[in-house]
């Protein structure tokens, strides 16, 4: 359904390439309060783009606008060259847009493996006989189908169902052997990672991550950073909301800063770190130790 190997996507995010996501002049109001005011930003393919800002700045609201859970009052959202502003959430996902949630939205009574499998199969029509037949004879979805043994992330998204299995995807995000755990009994950090694997399973071209690092310990957080960089290197566009500055500054190619619904700064991590406006609004001017988040 959504092959990632379109020509040119995996190339350098140079000026000429079409951005994976273009948000133009988006505004959202809740009652009397503006959550977003004329927000514009682009996310090129093959990069990790950071979106940071104080609490209540409008980051999650922007994610909701992009993924279709919140209708903007004004403005437009383009996914590559498709205008998706008024599109239903499930249709955007089919185009290749995946997201995770700040507050967990796992399928709690399914196992971790099944959670990922729902994502893997999202483009399959349920009335196709071959799947009913499989269900009659197989135990559960979590066992591997025969396929390419090199379960690189690059495979995810190409012909997902043939080669990627829940086990492999879970292993990819560092959850080996957890496929049979019921999701609602997992500790928060791991559950968050299952959500990430589930999002990856639909083979996205654009991945929206809302605080994937919260609830992770330091080692896990580092592993997450490595994974995101690897994903971007396959041509995927990643938009990352996160308060863990070590993570954000370490892996982002570009960072947008939101404050009170306005974009107050855009630039490289170094530029953002030394931007006085960002320091007063968000980072603090003191010398924050590395682990602040």
């Amino acid at each position: 359904m959504s092959p990632v190997d379109e020509p040119g996507l995996a190339s350098e995010p140079s000026g000429g390439a079409l951005p994976a996501l273009t948000v133009s002049q988006v505004s959202v109001r809740f009652g009397g309060v503006s959550a977003l005011t004329n927000v514009s930003l682009v996310v090129p393919p093959g990069t990790v783009t950071g979106l940071i800002g104080p609490n209540g700045a409008g980051k999650t609201t922007l994610f909701n606008v992009i993924s279709g859970l919140q209708e903007p009052d004004r403005g437009a959202v383009h996914f590559f060259d498709t205008d998706v502003t008024m599109m239903k959430p499930y249709r955007r996902a089919r185009l290749g847009l995946a997201r995770t949630f700040q507050l967990l939205e796992l399928f709690g009574t399914l196992t971790a493996g099944e959670n990922v499998q729902v994502g893997l199969e999202s483009t399959v029509k349920w009335w196709q006989w071959s799947h009913l037949r499989k269900a009659l004879w197989r135990n559960s979805g979590s066992e591997s189908a025969p396929g390419d043994p090199t379960a690189a992330v690059a495979l995810v998204g190409s012909d997902a169902l043939a080669v990627a299995t829940p086990d492999r995807l879970l292993a990819e995000v560092g959850l080996e052997g957890m496929a049979n755990e019921q999701a609602n009994a997992m500790p928060t950090g791991l559950a968050r990672t299952v959500e990430l694997a589930r999002g990856l399973a639909i083979g996205p071209k654009l991945l929206l991550l809302d605080e994937p690092g919260s609830g992770l310990d330091e080692a896990e957080s580092q592993a997450l950073g490595t994974l995101l960089v690897r994903l971007a290197s396959t041509g995927m566009a990643v938009l990352l909301v996160e308060h863990d500055m070590e993570l954000v500054m370490g892996i982002c190619d570009r960072i947008h800063v939101l404050d009170f619904g306005h974009v107050i700064a855009t630039g490289s991590p170094e530029a953002i770190r030394s931007d006085p406006a960002v320091q007063t609004a968000y980072l603090g001017t003191g010398s924050p130790p590395g682990g602040t988040r």
């Binding site: 104080p54 700040q102 609830g215 308060h243 609004a281 603090g284 602040t292």
Partner: peptide, 13 residues
């Protein structure tokens, strides 16, 4: 429990 979770650096400090 996880006081800093989801909070901006400035507020955490």
């Amino acid at each position: 429990d996880e006081l800093s979770m989801g909070l901006a650096p400035l507020i955490v400090a």
